[in-house]
Amino acid sequence: MSDAPALVVENLSLAIGPAGLVDGVGFQVAPGEVMAIVGESGCGKSVTAQAIMRLLPDAIRQTGGRILLGGRDISAIPERAMRAVRGQLMSMIFQEPQAALDPLTTVGSQIAEALRQPLGRVRGEVLRMLRDVGISDPERRIDQHPFELSGGMCQRIMIASALISRPAVLIADEPTTALDVTIQAQILDLLRRLAIERQTAVVLITHDMGVVADIADRMAVMYAGRIAEAGPTAEIFAAPRHPYTALLLASIPRLSDVPKSKLAVIEGRVPNPSEFGPGCRFASRCPRADARCAAETPPLRPLGAGRLTACFHAEPPHGTQP
């Protein structure tokens, strides 16, 4: 990547009480790039997003690491100035757009608020933004309230209000999970187009490998608070190196597999933070695990071509690649 990254997360660690939630997570996102953080519930992907926005719940503390926005460490910014950073340099969209919008304010005013201007002064700009996110009949929609709009339209409004101030970074936390597939496809197309056109760095938090495959340039797979594997999306899907990624991909029913065939299964369950041992957190469920995996934490190491994996057995013996 030649561009300077818009967002750098370095060695981020988060804890709730004595229990570690996120342990040494790091990645960077370039302008115009979509970076997916994918994992199952409880893997730490959503708290990571909240930490980047500095919107962590009170009970969760950042215990280490840095977050650099355009080269500037945001943990040093006081809370009042942070409010300006949010919305101006960095925005977030959520899973439930209807819940994230103010029910009593027209959508136009809410979008204008992101510019810190009354709607009257920026009406033209808001209309342009509405058209840009694919809202038909924007002159009418601008004065409507969120309850008058469908879920897909509300998510478009969220995106409009998140991007109108041209932030460098957009955090999208499960932006299409609550939407129907046909609407999801529209929103994903929209996100990808806007990321490229506006050179926004997008961090996409999701559990859906299909969504990752659709729009992410690069991805990081999280498991139990750590990154298991990271790299370019196409390469990871083609040849996953971490056993967790491989099993996760093999467990998804596809339009191309044999109906009623047995899907790959990951035995056991995700450990609780209180059960974390000294070794690899996937070791207890991993078909390739040995004594070393249970005793020692595998470092996230480069495998070439921008790929990283935290596994001692990332180079599989011949013929076992799923």
């Binding site: 038909s136 469908s150 897909g152 339209m153 129907d180 597939v181 046909t182 609407i183 999801q184 496809a185 529209q186 994903l188 197309d189 859906d208 490998m209 299909g210 969504v211 990752v212 495959a213 659709d214 999306t233 196409a234 899907f237 083609a238 991909l249 998804i252 596809r254 339009l255 191309s256």
Partner: peptide, 22 residues
């Protein structure tokens, strides 16, 4: 519209955009 967990087929897939809402 089904996003397939395979970047190659998924990105090669022709889009059939459905306009509007249900």
């Amino acid at each position: 519209a089904v996003p397939e967990p395979d970047p190659v087929t998924q990105r090669a897939k022709p889009r059939v955009p459905l306009e509007g809402e249900i």
